[in-house]
Design a protein around this nucleic acid. Sequence first.
DNA 1: TCTTGACTCTCCAGTTGGGGGAGGCTGTAG
DNA 2: CTACAGCCTCCCCCAACTGGAGAGTCAAGA
Lengths: 271, 271
Amino acid sequence: MFSIGEFSKITGLSVKTIRFYHEKELLIPVMVDAGSGYRYYDHANVETAYVIKTLRDLEFPIDQIKLVLQECDNTEGSILTQLQERKNAVKAKIQSQKNVLKAIDQVIAFEKENRKVSQNTTYHIEERELPAMLIGGIRMTGRYSDMGKAFGQLGRKLNRHINGNAMCLYHDGEYKEDDADFEPFFPIKKVVKVDGISVRELPACRVICLRHLGPYERLGVTYEKLFEYVNEKKLKLITPSREVYLKGPGMIFKGNPEKYITEIQLMVESE
Amino acid sequence: MFSIGEFSKITGLSVKTIRFYHEKELLIPVMVDAGSGYRYYDHANVETAYVIKTLRDLEFPIDQIKLVLQECDNTEGSILTQLQERKNAVKAKIQSQKNVLKAIDQVIAFEKENRKVSQNTTYHIEERELPAMLIGGIRMTGRYSDMGKAFGQLGRKLNRHINGNAMCLYHDGEYKEDDADFEPFFPIKKVVKVDGISVRELPACRVICLRHLGPYERLGVTYEKLFEYVNEKKLKLITPSREVYLKGPGMIFKGNPEKYITEIQLMVESE
DNA sequence: TCTTGACTCTCCAGTTGGGGGAGGCTGTAG
DNA sequence: CTACAGCCTCCCCCAACTGGAGAGTCAAGA
């Protein structure tokens, strides 16, 4: 018979753990001195202890180990079933961890992309030909402040198909506060079918564009510059116009709005 | 300003959780009524709540979220670092889970193998030519009861290279109790270098063999039958002899010793 | 103004698998 | 006989909440 300390050295379980297993009725000492309360263990206890250790290494929860030990001898096949169950549970856990990993990667990718845009240049009005692009978007009417949620949804649902910065189409010819008609979207790599997202091709077109540094509230100033240019050059605008969010709020933090960079693209008739 | 219930509906956090986050100073209500103790939240709190939710989804621990929130604006790159750290932590977790999975698989494989051997036949002495086999073993002197530990070690270290049932070589010509010279081993698929394990080829040979059903204590009876046969046929024995543990104790449970099946193989001179 | 019912408060306990330590008994060796 | 190692029970601690009890508060209807 071994005292708890000897038993601890034999089995490699800590004294605390052994007492805990006794309390949980997992590993019951062969004898407990009625007077002193000292626990004494024998060889059969050692065997049981090894079984418990093995199963704990396989991350069986205590309760299940108790079950396994109870039907120890009477069944032959049951341990295999239990092992299979445990295996499935561990598999499920791995899968959920992998999903977390994927989500983290996505956030990292987004934050990195968002940080890449250089801030040192000053911006000039440019005329450009935009190529056709495949997009996935959500057209909505309401307030601009709801756009964030839409981008969140788009990001989650389009995920790895995303092929560029967040953008938005403005279908109104004029500025509206409460009842605007706009369409947040992402360029995507190939046609996908996703609930609640409309996928289509945006045809190639000619645009004049200008970048804006600072919070969205001050976009008006930059729009004004573009309109001046349009008048001067006697160009004709076509709706919808676009904004490209080169650097905006992160997926986690809003960041510093003074550093946001947005490119405004106004479609004009080709000459 | 929102009451805690409204705030809960807005953010999707339970009321309990919101109070918990307050206690942890993660999410501090914009105002607490001094008289009633009622918590009131505003839009900034909603934003913070979303940040917390996002980070919790990525399995950031509370304390780290607190840090992240504290250095919210003052740093740009820090969140990326934190994300990378989190990623590595999750990766490590996945790896450890995968190891558990592998261990479970190994146990399952072992238990299945151990269960496969049919028990319904009666056994006869056979003469056989054994092919050469590559083995990994541990030669030891002492008691037979230490063999279990050796097999445990062998199983862990040889792992996927194992290519057959557990076996043992008996290098003594006679039966010894305390000071036996024996060598538990597994057949293996290819040469591997592992600390404390000797790997070599066992040459092909001629053996007479007989299977034994029951606990190891009664192996003597079966040995006797073989010795009778040897005398009768005037064969010459060569050491070492072997035992093949067709069905023995499981990796977790000892199982029922009455059902153990062991094949004894005695090497004889080729005719 | 009172009542009702929904809402909110604080405090306590429990979850898993133990670890750390206090304060007090026990066993054994010199 | 005494010292000291070993053992006992009891309580608190970890994370991230959840559940419940008992009491106080708010807003609306009678």
